[in-house]
Write a protein that binds this DNA or RNA. Sequence first.
DNA 1: GTTCAAGCGGAGCAGTTGCTCCGCTTGTCC
DNA 2: GGACAAGCGGAGCAACTGCTCCGCTTGAAC
Lengths: 204, 204
Amino acid sequence: MREPRAAAPTAGAPTATRGRRADAERNRAAIITAATAVFAEHGAEVDVREIARRSGVGMGTLYRHFPSKEDLLRLSLEQEFTAWLTEAHERAAATQDPWQALSGFFEQVLTTQAHNRALMDSYVQTGGPTEACVQKCRAFIDALRERCERAGLLRRGVSTEDLLSLSASLCQVVQTPGGQHRWRRLMTISLDGLSSRHREPLPS
Amino acid sequence: MREPRAAAPTAGAPTATRGRRADAERNRAAIITAATAVFAEHGAEVDVREIARRSGVGMGTLYRHFPSKEDLLRLSLEQEFTAWLTEAHERAAATQDPWQALSGFFEQVLTTQAHNRALMDSYVQTGGPTEACVQKCRAFIDALRERCERAGLLRRGVSTEDLLSLSASLCQVVQTPGGQHRWRRLMTISLDGLSSRHREPLPS
DNA sequence: GTTCAAGCGGAGCAGTTGCTCCGCTTGTCC
DNA sequence: GGACAAGCGGAGCAACTGCTCCGCTTGAAC
């Protein structure tokens, strides 16, 4: 608020921001690292003090670098989400079979769900931590959908939004007791319901 | 804590508990009514003061009748859940086609999800507000499953637990923006994946 | 009408959490 | 080494929430 913040570091690029003191730079990095780990473990609702503790700085330092918990969360999730989506792209590109690419994506969503609370909460609620991330994610899923559709593997009328919602809904399963062992079964069921062997039209 | 509470009223039975003053009886009923409405609207995390306000009593009165928010929530949800499951039983009994009975149950789950936050949260997390409720719910779903299986309509290897998890996972969709219009599509997809036309075995 | 225990209400306590304030420390420039 | 702005830490504020305490009120038994 008081500090105009020299040239926003363009989301996660570890460029040595000119004019910032070396220890400040170190602290800033430590905070992001700690926050990412803590959010992943405990979810977005975790106490800010836990992040300060884990990164070895005081509350004042934390809030000097990030004007609000919200901002810290967003930055941390943006980085994570970008890396995650990059991996998804790479996997999809390396997979010949369109249907396998689609089910591989579902599997990645659900595997991540088991390991990163805050990240997947944002995926479940809106499709990603920021509007820009959501856009990219939608575009990626849309490409998967089109590949499957062109190959005649996907049920008629299934939309990108359907695929996003369906993968998000399955995340619910992972968190329930015993869900760790059951999500693969439900994923199979859902994917089978998406296959072109079903010719009945979908409602509305 | 101080008051030994004369003979627990056996979960929601509106019997005039002997020895309680008339105004106390009235207040107790008002609290349960208000709590049920408030929990349905705002979910289980709602401020207790809101329930006191809505029922027109003070905090002291509320806590005289219910030793903790947890207790009030449990009692309120037990009543709601029992009524809900009763309706489910009636519907299933009135439906000839086993598959329609199953999909009717899914539909009831998802319709309720849109109108009762706390009730469905408990369904999603554990299958019901108390162990006894969960047992009854499981038994009911198991009966639906068996009817479908016996009629040769259900995919091999689908368990009661799968059906409960799947219906709970779809609840996730209803809460997302636009989910009100999409859950029916995803429900159709999931149910189709459950049909016996799929002969591939399910994982693990 | 009198009596009094049962019942009532809401101020306030204790714990939690996001965020701020300010006196002290330290990296950096000369 | 000295000067000093940038940076630091953590006590503490404010808002929220579950729950308690206790002086006042009232239903009901006589």
